[in-house]
């Protein structure tokens, strides 16, 4: 199966400095040169050069962090999924994190336009002692009729393994045609959904109070739930009506974790 876009990144730590040792990209995926907001710790922006995802597109990303490496991966702009008349868009991502590595993943939102079908499969394999912050968000794109939710469906599966044991399996499936997607239990009147997972030895007892405090000021703009995974990690789900609200909340959480990692706070967004 030929790929529309492939990206491979490998980060290694040499004398306390993380370098992106091996970068490979092909097709519609590209990465810019790493930026060092934090001394010794690179941030990589990936970009899609085609302008958007169309039917039949297939994308794959591999990220490997060796022991002690620290890397932030983000995107340069939202992933726009257009009409997929024949085949859905399929995107997969494998993330491998060695002991004591730190990987923060904060992509821009996925925007699904009218008649779009999108499936993503993410598998994260981490060793105990590694730190993961994984976020993503989904939103319906503008439609001719002006009504939201004209995409066909979005399926997202995220599996997190720690030392080979499945610790979290998030299976989100949004299909506007099947029942009322805006109703209670579904999107509850919101258009945007965001998810966040944090697994880290730095999450100590009491993190729930800290996270609860972070969300205090968003109670009017978003409906947020957070809970503890079976390995003690943190899972957060956000419903809101604007991308910037979810981005701000994810950024708050990211900077809260960066504080624990002795990293400076950042504002990654580009607009």
């Amino acid at each position: 199966m030929s790929m529309t876009g492939t990206l491979r990144l490998k980060a290694v730590c040499r004398d306390e400095k993380t370098v992106v040792a091996d970068t490979y990209f092909d097709g519609a995926f590209k990465v810019a040169r790493p930026v060092y907001f934090q001394e010794n710790e690179p941030t990589v922006y990936s970009l899609h050069v085609g302008g958007g995802y169309v039917g039949g597109d297939r994308y794959h990303t591999d990220v490997v962090l060796e022991e002690n490496a620290r890397l932030t991966l983000t995107t340069q702009s939202a992933a726009k999924v257009y009409k997929t008349p024949d085949e859905p868009v399929y995107q997969s991502m494998n993330i491998q994190l060695a002991k004591n590595s730190v990987f923060l993943y904060m992509p821009d939102p996925l925007i699904a336009y009218e008649q779009a079908r999108f499936q993503q499969e993410t598998v994260i394999r981490m060793e105990k002692g590694a730190t993961l912050l994984y976020s993503d968000s989904m939103t319906p794109g503008w439609s001719k009729s002006g009504r939201p939710f004209r995409y066909e469906w979005i399926r997202s599966r995220v599996k997190i393994y720690e030392d080979g044991v499945l610790q979290a399996y998030d299976h989100l499936f949004l299909k506007p045609d099947a029942g009322d997607l805006l109703s209670l239990m579904q999107m509850e009147g919101c258009t945007h959904v965001g998810s966040l997972f944090i697994v880290s030895p730095l999450l100590q007892a009491g993190w729930k109070e800290e996270v609860g405090d972070l969300f205090q000021s968003y109670s009017e703009q978003a409906r947020i739930g957070f809970s503890e995974l079976k390995n003690g990690g943190c899972t957060i789900r956000i419903l809101a009506n604007a991308s910037h609200v979810i981005e701000e909340i994810v950024l708050q959480c990211t900077n809260w974790m960066r504080g624990k990692l002795n990293q400076e706070a950042v504002a990654l967004r580009k607009y």
Partner: peptide, 19 residues
Amino acid sequence: DELGMSMPGLEVAQMRHEQ
């Protein structure tokens, strides 16, 4: 592989029950 398809609002409600 459709096993466990979840609804985001329900999950938020289940999480918020803790508080």
